[in-house]
Amino acid sequence: MKDLFLRLKGIDQRWWYLALALGIILFPWFTSNYWISVAVFFGIYALLGLSLNIILGYAGLFQLGHAAFWAVGAYTTAILNTRYGIPIFVTLPISALVSALFAILITKPILHLRGDYLCLVTIGFGEIVRLFLFNDPLGITGGINGIRGIDRPSIFGFVFHQPIHYYYLTLAFVVFTIFAMRRLENSRLGRAWIYVREDELAAEAMGIDTTQVKLLAFIIGAAWAGVAGTLYASRYTVIAPETFSFWNSCVMFCIVIIGGVGSIPGVLVGTLGMVVLPELLRDVLEEVVQWRMLVFGAAMMLMMIFRPEGFWPSPIRRHELRAAELTASE
């Protein structure tokens, strides 16, 4: 057994990545539509997690209302598509843009707030957005029933209508997002987020426009959540306010924290844990359904007590979280 392990370890890492990539690409050919749908669901949440990771992980801003940006993207697409017949691939960038503008509008006045205060205001904005969708004051969001009849995306006459089509579409988005996030991490802006997170005053004194840097985190995070919203709306063709509840903001928050804040593989692991695992549990035993949220809540507490940096943390964040423990216990 040990021998096998050592031999496995001896294999060049690249082969593992190749095997993983092949596995992901071939996955839908060896499984049922149900699991493909679960994978698509995973992909959409992974996008949401990665987008929140910019705000919460990189810039260290406590955002507990991320569902609002997701909602703005989904509803923008739904409204433009069902009312004006604009195709999904055209509404996609528009949704990203509208989400980003919305982020500027609401976060600009609150960027100076710290920690848990920011957390509360974002909860507030999230709830107001949900109520807006629910009450439908402008007569465009369809109230409690939401909007149905959203088109599937199509390009050059090809319509993405089967789960497997969606699988690859979502996969493409996730792969591009991971690629883009990796590059952002290692850029001037990525470093600026670290500086702001580590010591905002020192960052400001080093000539970094901390307000702008934080705002950019919200803008990019919101735009990406808007993209995820578009994918979601066109995948399910119907959206309703209850999807964009505070609960879902919490799920996204936990995806980032449990996976390992600021870490891309961490977000993917977190998405597995938060979104796919409950689905698996549902599948295993019918009676478990009732218990899974209970287990889930307990797991969140235990996780924070025994592994606060998450399952797959970024090295810097591990240092930060462990350092907080050290200095505080001195």
Partner: peptide, 11 residues
Amino acid sequence: AGQHCRTRAGV
């Protein structure tokens, strides 16, 4: 960090 304000690259 010091060079941040002397450079411009964005998203």
